[in-house]
Design a protein around this nucleic acid. Structure first.
Lengths: 141, 141
DNA sequence: TGAAATTAGTTACCTAGTTAACTACATATG
DNA sequence: CATATGTAGTTAACTAGGTAACTAATTTCA
């Protein structure tokens, strides 16, 4: 049973992203783009490396996502004290896209989780966090 | 809290795949390759479309993975009655890689799940299955 | 039986993640 | 101060997922 869990977990996460991407296309966004907008919104102007740390996604991935968001005029860089840094902000269009995305994600997750009890959700979240933590620890060895 | 769950879930699934891929490199395999070998092992000679259905991964993705496995001489196609089909089998090398991968995956998952109680694991699995099911149903609308 | 619809698989092109190797700037230390 | 080390970000090349549009073989059914 334990073995099957991980397979199911991965399958769910793919299905989840697929479905959410479909919803988010309404706002002209992909899920990964929305996540980055979310990070920027929370602590703009934010250097790229902080987004990478927060999302636990490697820098080149974030770099590429930011590049596309810049092309779509959703974000822009402002100069910082440290010349290596590129501190990123939302544009006005970016703020709008973020808000739209936020609403879509919120409704989607709410609807999806509706039938799960609070208690089960908590147990499940704790299990996931615990597994995630274990992975981090293993990494060191 | 519910909102955070999905984020954590996705982060875990990325971390999980990353760590497992690292382990599997010992056997010269990627996780997705191992999954496909697993399907083939269970019901060879198996047409590509059945792997796609079982793993719930689109056909072009499976097609590409099979192509690489063929290049590595881990699998081969045998002719079937239906001329559209390509029924896939493991080669002897493929059987070996599968066995190696199987052991690595088993040990990895066992170690990872070690500290989670049976009860919590069951709750978590049921939650995931329930969410997965809900996604499938939504899809129809 | 012949035309239409379905199915298996592929190709091309997109997003999203990874690692490895690099540049340019900043900081620490001899 | 000069050098070494560390850090922010990029580039290139890979795996892994997706959709859309296609070919060729098979079924359906009028």
């Amino acid at each position: 049973m334990k073995v099957n869990f991980f397979h199911q977990q991965l399958q769910f996460s793919r299905a989840f992203k697929k479905a959410l991407n479909k919803q988010l296309s309404e706002a002209g966004l992909f899920h990964s783009q929305w996540l980055v907008l979310y990070c920027i919104k929370k602590q703009q102007p934010v250097p790229l490396v902080e987004i990478s740390n927060y999302l636990d996604v490697e820098k080149p991935t974030i770099s590429r996502t930011i590049k596309r968001l810049e092309e779509q005029k959703l974000v822009e860089a402002v100069p910082g004290a440290d010349k290596r840094e590129r501190r990123i902000c939302l544009t006005e269009t970016g703020e709008n896209s973020y808000e739209k995305g936020q609403e879509i994600v919120f409704q989607f997750e709410k609807k999806l989780a509706a039938e799960i009890s609070e208690a089960d959700m908590e147990t499940t979240l704790n299990t996931i966090l615990s597994l995630k933590n274990k992975l981090k620890k293993e990494e060191i060895n």
